[in-house]
Design a protein around this nucleic acid. Structure first.
Lengths: 182, 182
DNA sequence: TTAAACTATATCAATTTGATATAGGTATTG
DNA sequence: CAATACCTATATCAAATTGATATAGTTTAA
């Protein structure tokens, strides 16, 4: 997905600073997508230059100025047009689509070159890690203000439910089949 | 995973050309990892310069020369050392770990900006695509020669079984819960 | 009190991708 | 049978992206 469309999409949930957009990627979006500061800040600048977003500078007494971006009408239109135009190309992407770099699967692939006790530890820690992820996806308590909007999206509960189901399947599979690796 | 470790790991399954390594990434590895030609060829050159692989030039009558790389003893040692040294850092990566860019999930996230009939088509095509993926993972027939070695790895049947289980879960979830999106 | 961690933007070297160049072979199709 | 498309095979490079670092003040924890 074009970085412009993505940033506009996130700004459509409410005005945000670049730093807050990054927080979304590190928080609720971390399992699905990420952009670095080096991409986010220049994208916001170019979106502003082309009037897809407006910017209000909040001088915060002593911290560096916070630049809060708001999506414009023109920006909303561009975002919707882009989403509609590219929708079909996103169908074959995602879990078992494009753009995945799973180092854990590579480790499994080459597991025969590792000592058995190492692989045992790795699999145990993977299970712990996935249980932790599962808790994360099932967690329903409060979240920091700037992450609240995304949490309350209708689509997010669909996505969280799917992620939860997938992790559970992965955990069950691992527990039942880990013997087949060695 | 370092590109060197990964290329060495693939060469540990048998001698290969750069083009054939790329075919592995486009074939059986496509759902888990990928490297471009722009990374593969320079990596093979530097591995050769440092004696981690040897290279035999096969002049093929009329096609361009095929450079077939073979992992050396020194290369096997480097690969194993790297795998062991970095194993713990790969635990938190993969499905629901790092490095995933799922455009399909982004599309779901922004689905409210798309016409209902578009999302309906998208979801139908996604289901078809996943069914096709499922077939791919369950397929047990013959594969081209250079992809055979990877197919016969013990770890690969574990991985394929896992992928298959995950896709099935995803399909079931989608069919039961797609109403919740709109 | 002092170190660590957080808020906030900006920049940039190093890496990586995706496209293109080159060049001949093979398969399809009307 | 000729034309078109796709396959084998390596190489290179502009453009995009990351990951790290710089800067600088604030807040939290020990």
């Amino acid at each position: 997905m074009q970085k412009e469309t993505l940033c506009l999409g996130l700004l459509s949930l409410g005005p945000r600073s670049g730093y807050e957009i990054k927080q979304m990627f590190e928080g609720p979006l971390s399992d699905f997508y990420s952009l670095s500061f080096g991409t986010i800040y220049p994208t916001l600048n170019s979106l502003q230059a082309d009037k897809y977003v407006s910017c209000k500078q909040h001088s915060q007494s002593k911290k560096p100025d916070k630049k809060v971006y708001t999506i414009t009408k023109k920006g909303m239109e561009l975002m919707k047009d882009n989403l509609l135009g590219d929708a079909s190309s996103y169908i074959r992407s995602g879990n078992f689509g494009d753009q995945i770099k799973s180092e854990f699967f590579l480790l499994l692939l080459f597991s025969k070159y590792l000592p058995k006790e190492t692989m045992n530890t790795v699999l145990n820690e993977r299970v712990l890690y996935l249980r932790q992820k599962l808790e994360q996806f099932n967690y329903d308590g409060p979240v920091p203000g700037n992450l609240d909007a995304i949490r309350n999206e209708k689509s997010v509960s669909f996505i969280r439910g799917l992620a939860s189901a997938l992790i559970e399947t992965g955990l069950n599979y691992m527990e039942k089949n880990r013997g087949k690796l060695s």
